[in-house]
Amino acid sequence: MSKVCEVCGKHPVAGRSISHSHRVSNRMFRPNIQKVTIRDAKGHVRRANVCTSCMKAGKVERA
């Protein structure tokens, strides 16, 4: 499944985890992507990969 939101374009970002003893390891910040049924701008019903923050903000019209 795609890791990119089709509404806002949010995608995974690399970063670093730093422990209490300041040991550093690489990590990924991944968006919470869900496959939902939406109604697009043309009025067609289709499935799309959308992040949960877009769903909560009401940026997509659920079908």
Rank of each mutant, 00 (worst) to 15 (best):
Met1Phe: 13
Met1Arg: 02
Lys3Glu: 02
Lys3His: 11
Lys3Thr: 04
Val4Gln: 07
Val4Leu: 09
Cys5Thr: 09
Glu6Asp: 13
Glu6Pro: 03
Glu6Gln: 14
Val7Thr: 14
Cys8Met: 07
Gly9Gln: 08
His11Met: 00
His11Asp: 06
His11Gln: 15
Val13Asp: 07
Ala14Cys: 01
Arg16Gly: 01
Arg16Phe: 10
Ser17Gln: 05
Ser17Val: 11
Ser17Gly: 12
Ser17Met: 05
His20Ser: 14
Val24Arg: 15
Val24Ser: 03
Ser25Cys: 07
Asn26Gln: 12
Asn26Ile: 03
Arg27His: 08
Arg30Lys: 01
Arg30Val: 00
Arg30Ser: 01
Ile33Gln: 04
Ile33Met: 09
Lys35Val: 06
Thr37Glu: 15
Thr37Trp: 13
Thr37Gly: 02
Ile38Met: 11
Ile38Glu: 00
Arg39Gly: 04
Asp40Asn: 15
Asp40Glu: 05
Asp40Gln: 10
Asp40Tyr: 05
Ala41Trp: 03
Ala41Pro: 10
Ala41Tyr: 08
Ala41Leu: 06
His44Cys: 04
His44Gln: 15
Val45Gln: 00
Val45Lys: 07
Arg47Thr: 12
Ala48Gln: 04
Asn49Ile: 06
Cys51Gln: 04
Cys51Leu: 02
Ser53Gln: 07
Ser53Trp: 00
Cys54Glu: 02
Cys54Met: 09
Met55Ser: 14
Lys56Ser: 04
Lys56Gln: 07
Ala57Phe: 00
Lys59Arg: 11
Lys59His: 15
Val60Trp: 04
Glu61Pro: 02
Arg62Leu: 14
Ala63Asn: 05
